[in-house]
Design a protein around this nucleic acid. Sequence first.
DNA 1: ATACTTGCAAATGATTTGCCAGTGT
DNA 2: ACACTGGCAAATCATTTGCAAGTAT
Lengths: 147, 147
Amino acid sequence: MTGSPHAPPLACRTLAEAVAALRQRGLRLSTSRKLVLEALFATDNPVSSEHLAGQLGMDLSTVYRNLEEFERQGLVRHVHLGHSPGLYALTGHADREYLYCEQCGAIKALEPHELDTVRDTVHERFGYRARFTHFAIVGTCPECLRG
Amino acid sequence: MTGSPHAPPLACRTLAEAVAALRQRGLRLSTSRKLVLEALFATDNPVSSEHLAGQLGMDLSTVYRNLEEFERQGLVRHVHLGHSPGLYALTGHADREYLYCEQCGAIKALEPHELDTVRDTVHERFGYRARFTHFAIVGTCPECLRG
DNA sequence: ATACTTGCAAATGATTTGCCAGTGT
DNA sequence: ACACTGGCAAATCATTTGCAAGTAT
């Protein structure tokens, strides 16, 4: 979770695919490494390092070291919704972007293309190509706007 | 810098105005408190707690406690650009929003209204009212897009 | 006079690192 | 075999909290 620019995404649909890709890049596939990958493939949502370590019964530092390596390879990314710690997900599996309501904490996950209009608007006006995969879009949800 | 929803903004143009507003709300105006306010009024950019503590020669915890109080009053807000720690600024003075380039670290500050089209797009499509004052918009700047 | 503020030190939460024993290739 | 990986403990970074002494009202 270092501040360095991100590796190009390494999208893998299956565990086998990911293992192959990592092998090809010369990485060793230890038991813990495979467990972390499995866990990431098994869930639909970004998960915390804490959660992974607990669930897999392995040391937090090991989890972090593996996630770090996976991020370096572009296989994994982490997101920040409100003020919470980083949450990790597979790049290819969870290219979602999030709307976070700061009043009620509601989180709306968006499929990869759903923010394209927004992205285009930003691009037209400022020339920046935006990604909302690192920081959620924070605001007020429809319900709280009414209330 | 707690996760709680924000107080309504308390926009003050001058130090005197801010002092008056805080007094009115029953807050004591200690020397350190005034120093922090002065420092915030003196700069155009969001600053780190560290920076304030150093510059003003006061304890970090005092700085944090004051910033916390000011945020509670809606006078101050903090922003996160990339992975860096929180940066603090006066609400009324720095209602800016930021575009952050994750390749080169470039930061573009936008005036309050400049993202309105973007905000409207988000609102039309998802009903959310977005604020980019807490998390910058992260992406790739025009220069890096070319390179 | 009294309640709020300070500095200092120690606690916290998230993440990182050192080290040495263990394991994948 | 040998370089890489794991667990454990300690370090770090940003931020928070406890406490006794000091200060604003």
